[in-house]
């Protein structure tokens, strides 16, 4: 697995916070990721949901934003010391509790992704839109959402590591 450089939390948070403000000032758009997955779905679906509201405009900015993020991950890996290693490893902790069989591992990760995709649409945003942007806007529903994100995460991980660890 690629080992990337990790900086102090306060510095990372400062940089991400400033990024969000800069994006807003530059483009007028709030930082948020999850609705971008809807923009991808809109490319191949005729459902009304993907033809209205935030997806009324085809090929919107979110698609381009989502295209850039993996490039940023690649850049971060290239500028870290070790080699880039393509790997299915989930790191020492998750590897200890996740099944070894590829299909079972893939199924769990897929289930996690599905829960995030469905849940974020029900909730109206994800970690970036609700927690970082929403809390920064002093928006109380976003604070409620953020608290529930953490409750769900704690429940899932505690269960995973206690049942299988």
């Amino acid at each position: 697995m690629t080992e990337v450089v990790v900086i102090d939390a306060w510095l990372g948070g400062l940089a991400i916070g400033l990024y969000g403000v800069a994006q807003l000032l530059l483009t007028g758009k709030q930082l948020g990721v999850s609705s971008g997955y809807g923009s991808i779905c809109a490319l191949g679906s005729r459902a009304d949901y993907f033809r209205s509201g935030s997806h009324a405009v085809r090929n919107d900015w979110r698609l381009y934003f989502l295209l850039g993020i993996p490039l940023g991950g690649l850049l971060a890996a290239l500028t870290s010391e070790g080699p880039i290693v393509a790997s299915l490893s989930l790191g020492p902790l998750y590897d200890r509790v996740f099944p070894q069989a590829l299909w079972a591992k893939a199924a769990l990760l897929f289930a996690g992704g599905t829960a995030m995709g469905y849940g974020s649409r029900l909730a109206g945003g994800c970690t970036s839109g609700h927690v970082i942007t929403g809390v920064a806007l002093l928006n109380w529903p976003s604070m409620v959402a953020g608290g529930c994100f953490f409750l769900g995460g704690i429940a899932a991980v505690q269960l995973l590591f206690r049942a299988l660890g």
């Binding site: 599905t114 829960a115 995030m116 849940g119 909730a123 609700h130 959402a145 769900g152 429940a155 899932a156």
Partner: peptide, 9 residues
């Protein structure tokens, strides 16, 4: 929705 998201997270 937020709880479901958190579980996936």
């Amino acid at each position: 929705g937020s709880l479901i998201f958190g579980i996936g997270w």
